[in-house]
């Protein structure tokens, strides 16, 4: 990937840059629902990570291989049984949380396999989404590009929801970044942020 491609990726997927900022050089990572392998490739180029992606889609498997990243074809909802306890520094779930069916066991699995978990997801509490509902329609946007009838998203949540969920699961949030586009959001994040990225570990 040329430096230009990397810059372009960082712009189109601002959560990539946020995730990369948390990942030290040479870390081992597992990317769940890795799509075409862009994030892994980005981290390989910028952070020299070692790791694997897990993906179910046939087309994405070919893209990952073409991207030169390791990919294991598997369904996330059937668990991470191929991976051993504590075998990764980070287990990432980028823009996939909302499309997983068995979300709670998956988060537990992430923290079984990895030292830390990282998730990014579209914030359903973002004001534009709220406005859309208020006006009587399910939101459709860059972050939520689907119609209600063809969406893979079955578990959408807000920042508040996710943080409550972590507390209930005894998961400790270590860091949070909230963004709208490339812009970092500090004020009223659950209202003004369109994308959230969390870094977390097992609670003590």
């Amino acid at each position: 990937m040329s430096p230009n491609d990397i810059t372009k990726l960082a712009v189109t997927r601002p959560d990539f840059a946020a995730i990369a900022a948390w990942i030290p050089q040479g870390a081992s990572v597992l990317d769940l629902g890795c799509g075409d392998g862009s994030l892994l490739r980005y981290l390989k180029e910028t952070r020299a990570v070692r790791g694997y992606g897990v993906e179910i889609s046939d087309l994405d498997i070919v893209s990952c291989i073409a991207n030169g990243v390791n990919v294991i074809q598997n369904d996330l909802d059937s668990g991470l049984s191929d991976f051993e306890d504590g075998s990764f520094d980070f287990v990432m779930l980028s823009q996939t949380l909302q499309a997983t069916r068995h979300t709670e066991p998956l988060i537990r699995e992430m923290l079984r396999v990895g030292r830390e978990g990282i998730v990014s997801f579209p914030n359903f509490g973002y004001w534009k989404n709220r406005l859309s509902i208020l006006l009587g329609n399910m939101p459709v946007s860059r972050e939520l590009p689907y119609q209600w009838y063809d969406t893979p998203n079955v578990h959408l949540c807000t920042l508040h929801d996710f943080e409550t969920f972590c507390r209930d699961l005894n998961v400790t949030v270590l860091e949070r970044r909230v963004m709208t586009g490339e812009r970092e959001v500090g004020l009223l994040p659950n209202l003004l942020g369109s994308t959230a990225v969390y870094r977390f570990q097992r609670g003590i």
Partner: peptide, 21 residues
């Protein structure tokens, strides 16, 4: 084939696995 993949993951080899329908 997954039985082949697992020891490769354990040993941190570069490995990709595709299950063809």
């Amino acid at each position: 084939s997954r039985e082949i993949v697992r020891p490769l993951l354990h040993n941190r080899r570069n490995v990709s696995y595709a299950e063809i329908t």
